[in-house]
């Protein structure tokens, strides 16, 4: 393994010259047009199959309770009041805010700590590096469920029960994120940071100015994953949080899912609202990803 080998694979394909500025001569207008239509056609068909369930969910959130599971997606009677009911029956806004706040903190901390660790594993040379890394990796292989109890006892001992900190801190260190970012940092051409080292830059500068900007696509992906994973987490907040004002969305939703009155249409309405921050985050992150391309183009 080692980054040298990965680096080699990059170097082999170094371009003979800096091309790409002229017009591609072989691609005629018709060719490009055909390619455009084919791509869009294929993507559109696939996208529709992905979109349908989501549309179905949105429509179901407007249905009366008795039609929710009907395959016919259109409600016989539109009930926009389902959304108002969600806010009436539980302090939904507070749950919403808590979920977003906790997930944002976890995302921020995880990205930061993982990126730093990944830098040490991918761009610094030290003895025992790969051993330590493999140890990290190995911990991913244990189902998280068996560490639930010791973790809980520990969190209680640390006086983090029933607090935001208890939701944030244990989730902020991740071997997964370290592994992911390490893989991204491996693809950075070594020439780049070597040049910086030569100029006398310290590891701190190399990390912030070279490694992080170039690992940005990975960082964005990690941010999306972390946010999503934490935003939807259920069992940990269930056992950790006792006060109503600290509850997160998945716990709040239990109210609509009780044995006596499973209000599936309200669950759907809450789920749709649940999705909004995720979609916003995703779209924003993808904008950044596109810009990343241009940046990389300029820098490289």
């Amino acid at each position: 393994m080692t980054s040298d080998e990965a680096a080699k694979s990059v170097r082999v394909y170094e371009p003979a010259g800096r091309g790409g500025l002229g017009t591609p001569g072989y691609a005629g207008w018709w060719y490009r047009r055909g390619q455009f239509i084919a791509s869009h056609g294929l993507l559109a068909v696939l996208a529709i199959t992905m979109l349908l369930p989501f549309l179905w969910m949105v429509l179901a959130s407007f249905k009366p309770l008795d039609e929710v599971e009907n395959l016919n997606p259109f409600p016989s009677r539109w009930q926009p009041e389902n959304y108002a009911k969600v806010f009436d029956q539980v302090p939904f806004a507070r749950y919403y805010f808590n979920s977003v706040l906790v997930a944002l903190w976890v995302t921020f901390l995880q990205c930061l700590t993982s990126a730093m660790a990944a830098f040490a594993f991918a761009r610094l040379q030290w003895r025992g590096r790969d051993m330590v890394f493999r140890l990290y990796l190995a911990t991913l292989m244990i189902p998280g469920i068996v560490t639930m109890i010791p973790n809980y006892v520990l969190t209680v001992k640390l006086q983090l029960l029933d607090s935001y900190l208890g939701l944030i801190v244990p989730a902020s260190f991740s071997a997964f994120g370290t592994f992911l970012l390490r893989q991204f940092m491996l693809t950075i051409p070594p020439a780049l940071d070597e040049a910086a080292w030569m100029d006398g830059a310290g590891p701190w500068t190399v990390f912030w100015d070279i490694a992080l900007p170039l690992a940005r696509p990975g960082l964005i992906a990690l941010a999306v994953f972390t946010f999503m994973g934490n935003y939807g987490s259920f069992f940990w907040p269930l056992i950790l949080i006792k006060s109503e004002h600290l509850r997160t969305l998945p716990i709040g939703m239990l109210y609509f899912d009780s044995v006596y009155g499973k209000q599936t249409n309200l669950i759907m309405a809450a789920s749709v609202m649940n999705l909004i921050p995720l979609i916003v985050l995703f779209v924003v992150s993808q904008k950044f990803l596109v810009r990343g391309i241009q940046m990389g183009g300029v820098k490289g």
Partner: peptide, 23 residues
């Protein structure tokens, strides 16, 4: 740049602390 052990320790510290305690 054969041995950056000190720098590496610094970069690993935040993650490894949480990692040791919570994982």
């Amino acid at each position: 740049r054969q041995n950056d052990i000190l720098a590496a320790a610094g970069f690993l510290l935040p993650n490894i602390l949480g990692f040791l305690v919570f994982t």
